[in-house]
Amino acid sequence: MHAINYEAPKSLDEAVKLLAAHGEKARPLSGGTDLLIQLRAGTRRPEFVVDIKQIPELTRISFSLQHGLRLGAAAPCISIHENSDMRKYYPGLTEAAHLIGSLQIQSRATVGGNLCNGSPAADTTPALIALGAQARVIGPKGERTVPVDGFCLAPGRTVLQPGELLVEFHIPAPERHSSDAYLRFIPRNEMDIAVVGVGAALSLDVSDDRVVEARIGLGAVGPTPIFAAEASKSLIGKTLDAAAIENAARLAIAVATPIDDMRGTAEFRRHVVGVLTRRTLAKAAERAREANQR
């Protein structure tokens, strides 16, 4: 492994300055569960590693029914699972964060890191997409907001420009009868990476079980995580019956562009997108019916 310079700024200002000064030679270090492996394998060779976990804004989780959720990019996954608001209002995102590695890994790994690593198989990204999360980014040219469903460009590549830093996610306040769910398929029962991941968020009108709002995010079935727009739209205004779910599953399969690799064949992945879309929608719907968020 090559020699690196380690910096641990205490403020957002300081971090932005460091990243701006070193540009492409710098890489932010969040939990490090991807970056350290890449450094050791030599697949990323930054000269500067900027540890962002000492910056208060980046590790904060704040929630209110008026403003929704602000989730710091470097908040460890375990703190999401330990947060009662997260478990209550965003159970799908919470379960996605809780699926990443062991408890030890969850104490390091972060949702921001999961997204910025740019892996199509990131567990939390489809859950964020389902919730309509927005990413707040700060860089040398100021601040901007990027929807998570447009954040990843290719495997390992995101919209972040050299010097830019992901600060936090904003997720809208939950509707009264709304909830989310995330399911992934792995060949084993633990310590594995998604072969297919599906996140779904639903808001229901419980008087007639009609879908008010629906969003479906897919993982590991294309070069980036995917927002299944047609499948999501197909549900709105519909009663959530077997036919509606089946139709959404079919539309979700249609936007998946998986490949054959050591984790599964493209054919297998397309089939499982359908299976998990059905299962995730059913689970999110069950939660939304029971929810009384206001």
């Binding site: 060949p187 064949t265 054919e267 297998f268 089939h271």
Partner: peptide
Amino acid sequence: MSPPRLLK
């Protein structure tokens, strides 16, 4: 007999 093979 991994899931893709068995499912197929």
